[in-house]
Nucleic acid binder design. Sequence first.
DNA 1: CGATACATGTAAGAAGTTACATGATTGT
DNA 2: ACAATCATGTAACTTCTTACATGTATCG
Lengths: 185, 185
Amino acid sequence: MQSGITLLGYALLGLIQQKPASGYDLRKIFAETPMGTFSDSPGAIYPALLRLEQRKLIQGTIEAGSGLRQRKLLRLTVAGHAELKTWLSAPITQDDLSHRSNELMLRFAFLDHMLGEAATLRFLRSLEAELRIYVPGLQAFLKSHGPKMPISGRLALESGVLGYEAQLRWASRAVSVYEQKIKAK
Amino acid sequence: MQSGITLLGYALLGLIQQKPASGYDLRKIFAETPMGTFSDSPGAIYPALLRLEQRKLIQGTIEAGSGLRQRKLLRLTVAGHAELKTWLSAPITQDDLSHRSNELMLRFAFLDHMLGEAATLRFLRSLEAELRIYVPGLQAFLKSHGPKMPISGRLALESGVLGYEAQLRWASRAVSVYEQKIKAK
DNA sequence: CGATACATGTAAGAAGTTACATGATTGT
DNA sequence: ACAATCATGTAACTTCTTACATGTATCG
């Protein structure tokens, strides 16, 4: 993360971009949806929002609302938009696959709304291509190291491989969904 | 983690239990195997080992070896064994499934060697049972919220659901592998 | 009137990241 | 001689966790 923004930061940025929100709104999203394994604790979210505000990636305006307690509605700044776009546009690496697959899915979830269908399709094709390199590597590791591993270790590894295989099938299907969508126009 | 031991700590404990090892050995395991998404940085591992040693869960003996630089071989203490066993024996919760599935797989990988096949089978059956509750919940969420979600958000969620479905199929198969193993005796 | 949901934050401490420091041994 | 591998650690910084603090509005 050479930009100095954590994954939580990008998650917040992406959600705010989809729809301006308060810290409380964002907390609820993390608490109530099965997506993302982000913390819903105020001790993580409010400081993260403060950092984004200090970097001028988001800006809060206090809603003079319906008499409720003050509520700060957060919006992306121009710089925030740019930062999010840069993050979404980064090429997919093997290292992303092995260590940051949740980050990849988070990027995907925001891509369509932010950069459009063509960019999303490019992302999915690239993801599929990288998985087609990565998965056989895992399978080969399993084949060569498996026999000398204890059975439970081998099974645990197999579980991981099956997960990536499922992701590959998903990516292929998602590619065709987007191809259809684009062709339909 | 009310025991005050992090997941990295348990990973180290489990690996040391399988085979006494040095910090360097452990680093290499994290760096070279696709299992576990643990840091291979000395700045994470050595302090973690120090904490385990301070809690008297592991004990290091300097190997008067082949002339190489001093190498501290780490072994579990009796208390370390007990701690690992407690961790491995904890019941599986829905929260484990949604927020700590990597911890569950790590536990599984160590279970057989530490507690034997019968305990491993119990774990797998429990995992399968919890997944049979969890997966339909995810599917229901997808069905009810999916239609009002943007396509990419829905697909991202589907990817997660597919991953859990794959894990459920894996768990069922692993159960039968262990049933066979036990019956064969 | 009490519980719950709304709403935003802070403080202390634990743990991880990155980068640096140190030094021995082995192979070329 | 030099690079790579073995081997263990520390320091500064960032971030997250847990727990606390504070206060309003609504519902039964």
